[in-house]
Computed example of a mutant assay.
Amino acid sequence: MPANHVDAVIIPVSASALEGHVRELAEDIGERHVGRPQSLAAARDYISSQWQTEGHAVEFQEYDALGVPCANLSVALPGIRWPGQVVLMGAHYDTVPRSPGADDNASGVAALLQLSRRLSGCRPSRTIRLVASVNEEPPFFFWEQMGSAIYARAARQRGVDIRAMFSLEMLGCYRDEPRSQQYPPFLGRGRPDRGNFIAFVTNIRSRRLLKYALAAFKVGTDFPVEGTATFGWLPGVSWSDHINFWRQGYPALMITDTAFFRYPHYHSLQDTPEKLDYRRMAAVVEGLARMLIRLADDECL
């Protein structure tokens, strides 16, 4: 670990805590989108309260979408050497209608909440920022009222120096049976046919970030990981919040269990908490915590 990580206060990533967050969002709150504004607000309040309980100052970026008040939430671990440079990790907290959204994307939000605890003893060289964004799913996906579009556009207008953005998009499904993993066209050759890895996916422009992120992740964990930098128009490659950071010229990539290429309950009523593998999910989040620390301290990023 880098010298500026305070080992005495490390709080390990907890599989049971991850499951608790997923169950709160997917079972107790349920589907959460502008068609159910009370549930969307309940998810926002849950995330905010978790961060506030840990002592974080939560920033709210509020706006209206289809007449519904919405908000992105963020917390920061200030950098001590290059505070104006930012390593950002985000996840969306909304769902599609008629889905409780355990994997998509309570899993990503749960990871954010555990990362804030895991990194609580970290004094990074760069600022690490965690962002829970709203309105990633249709009818907003791809358009300007996505929460991440609002966030990235405002960051560019303010001149924020985001050195890396990571979108956590479904982290809970891992499968060991043969042929449980599918791929977009042209990407499957030579890759595992078992869905037991985490994937780092980006466009060709962000391939340098992919190189650094993969190296930093592999130093911190032996959890299986696959990475690819390819054309953004291939199915699934741009289908999360990282697309809006690409549009603003920021390097960004998606971290994912590959969604419908592995998970049969994608965007369905069956996307429920008992389907997820919290033990392996915890191993991934621990690897991500160590990756963030290394990237925040890496002079070359």
Rank of each mutant, 00 (worst) to 15 (best):
A102H: 07
A102I: 09
P138G: 12
A57Y: 09
W82F: 11
E137L: 08
P235W: 10
L171M: 09
Y278D: 01
D94W: 08
V86A: 06
N135Q: 09
V58W: 11
P100S: 03
G249N: 02
G159I: 04
P139I: 07
S125K: 12
E169C: 00
S125E: 14
Q182F: 01
L209W: 03
Y93D: 10
G236R: 12
A3M: 14
V9P: 07
T228A: 07
H92S: 13
F245S: 01
G20L: 05
S74A: 08
A132Q: 10
K275S: 05
I255P: 04
T221E: 02
F231P: 00
P138H: 07
V58N: 08
S16N: 10
S116I: 03
G159D: 05
A282R: 06
R36A: 15
A164N: 07
W143I: 04
G190H: 08
R156N: 13
G220S: 04
I162T: 07
L112M: 13
V34Y: 10
P12M: 09
V6T: 12
Q50F: 03
G236I: 12
I10S: 14
I10W: 03
S48H: 11
E136N: 08
F60A: 12
A71T: 15
P224F: 10
G84K: 05
F142T: 15
S206I: 04
L214F: 08
A283N: 00
C300I: 12
N196M: 05
M1N: 11
A8G: 09
P184G: 06
A106P: 12
L210A: 09
S16T: 13
L40W: 06
S107Y: 11
I150P: 04
Q114K: 02
W246Y: 00
T272F: 01
T127H: 06
P184A: 15
E274K: 01
L88K: 09
V75P: 02
A110G: 12
L234K: 12
R280H: 11
I162C: 07
V201D: 04
S240M: 10
L210N: 07
F60K: 14
P178C: 02
P184R: 11
E31M: 01
G30S: 08
E177A: 13
S120H: 05
W143Q: 14
I255Y: 02
T258Y: 03
Y63V: 01
T272C: 02
Y46L: 13
R189W: 13
L168S: 06
P273Y: 14
Q181G: 00
